[in-house]
Design a protein around this nucleic acid. Structure first.
Lengths: 216, 216
DNA sequence: CAATTTCGATACGCTCCCGTAGCGAAACTG
DNA sequence: CAGTTTCGCTACGGGAGCGTATCGAAATTG
């Protein structure tokens, strides 16, 4: 459905004037930089013009207002976290969570997401985009987990929406809300805590060392 | 440690001039309204003055700049989610999560939190406050869970930080990041999924109906 | 009641940013 | 190569908001 919008913005229209494409790319790059450095309040049309070297007039030719530029900028930063397919489900998921965690803390995606949270609260377009990007971002993970259900690694009646929430929710929560650290230890314990009872019910019985004592 | 700041702002100093107290309260109330309605960009000193009826000059007498007003406004909205202490741990936690979920979606706290996420990214004070408020907010839940560990309801080696993350993380995530619904069904399944393997390991073995099929 | 504190109101200069207009130059298209 | 499109540049009027200064009125304190 509204995934069309995303595609539409990433790949230019069929045979667009290269000058148009190039100036847009430069403006978006500058917008991302500005958002990284000074947050939402740092993104102004004039600042983007100065930073990108593209004339203010030209920017207005492609973006209606600041919100649209903001939306496009957030949309332009990708979030690609690979998902491995080995025989070890827990290791694959742990790898994914580690990758996601890194992206949230070190990449443009993580930096711009905080500015989008604010925007989504009062803009229908933003809210829709947040939702779409989320769906897209979780797709690989979702497929991996569905595969695990198919081959019997996970119980057939597991709720994937809940499961995914348990895996990625805490990472986002600690990054943006509670602002707590999430080192490798935390990620490992999280994944283990979520998946161990599912993949090997026997281990959920007592203190087996698979569920350690405390995380930092 | 820095919890001092919170207390300091909520309760007025010893024998403060009542005029000062009253005007501050009115300004903060107006600031909360403005943040609710128009987000961070809606909060300006002049708008707060107009809305509250307090003169702009007076506002500057108590708040250094807009950021400080924003910080105080966010700080002024409480987030009190009660935690029950019955013999049924799962029910108690489910009740808490339901309450938290409601607060996130309907209260001032939920509305202002999104503006704070943005601010915390570039302000040390904001980041510290977010952390402190989080600690304070999770305290009751943490105590309840510690009690459950003490009386043997939960295994002694459970990682409370991870556990709490699994419980509240998904609620925040779906509210602010992925913008997905979290109805009563989702909350119930989440709590069940997290706690069932811990409180009653036997039930984690197969499809017992305690881990339903899909959530909306 | 007298001294102190805080208040409201007004006015001000200043900066930043908006969004539009007009132009000739440069780049692209067919 | 001729026509079209996009560009960069400059300039402009206007609004919003900042942060400060001043000053008389009102409330509080002791």
């Amino acid at each position: 459905m509204s995934t069309v919008r995303v595609t539409e913005m990433l790949s230019a229209a069929v045979h667009e004037d290269p000058r148009r494409t190039k100036s847009r790319a430069r403006v978006l790059a500058a917008a991302v930089e500005l958002l990284r450095e000074d947050g939402l309040s740092g993104l102004t049309i004039e600042a983007a013009a100065a930073r990108s070297g593209v004339a203010k007039t030209t920017i207005y030719r492609q973006f209606a207002d600041r919100d649209e530029l903001h939306l496009s900028a957030v949309n332009s930063v990708g979030c690609h976290v690979p998902v491995a397919y080995t025989v070890d489900l827990v290791a694959d998921i742990a790898s994914f969570c580690t990758g996601l965690n890194t992206v949230l803390r070190d990449s443009d995606f993580g930096a711009l997401l905080s500015t989008a949270v604010d925007g989504a609260e009062r803009s229908e377009s933003f809210a829709a985009m947040m939702h779409d990007v989320g769906v897209q971002r979780r797709q690989l993970l979702s497929e991996r987990l569905r595969g695990a259900v198919s081959d019997g690694t996970l119980p057939h009646d597991v709720d994937l929406e809940v499961l995914i929430g348990q895996l990625v929710g805490p990472l986002f929560y600690r990054r943006f809300i509670s602002r707590q650290a999430t080192g490798p230890t935390f990620v490992a314990r999280l994944v283990s805590s979520v998946l161990t009872p599912l993949v090997d019910p026997a281990r959920a019985s007592s203190g087996s060392g698979a569920r350690p004592r405390s995380a930092r």
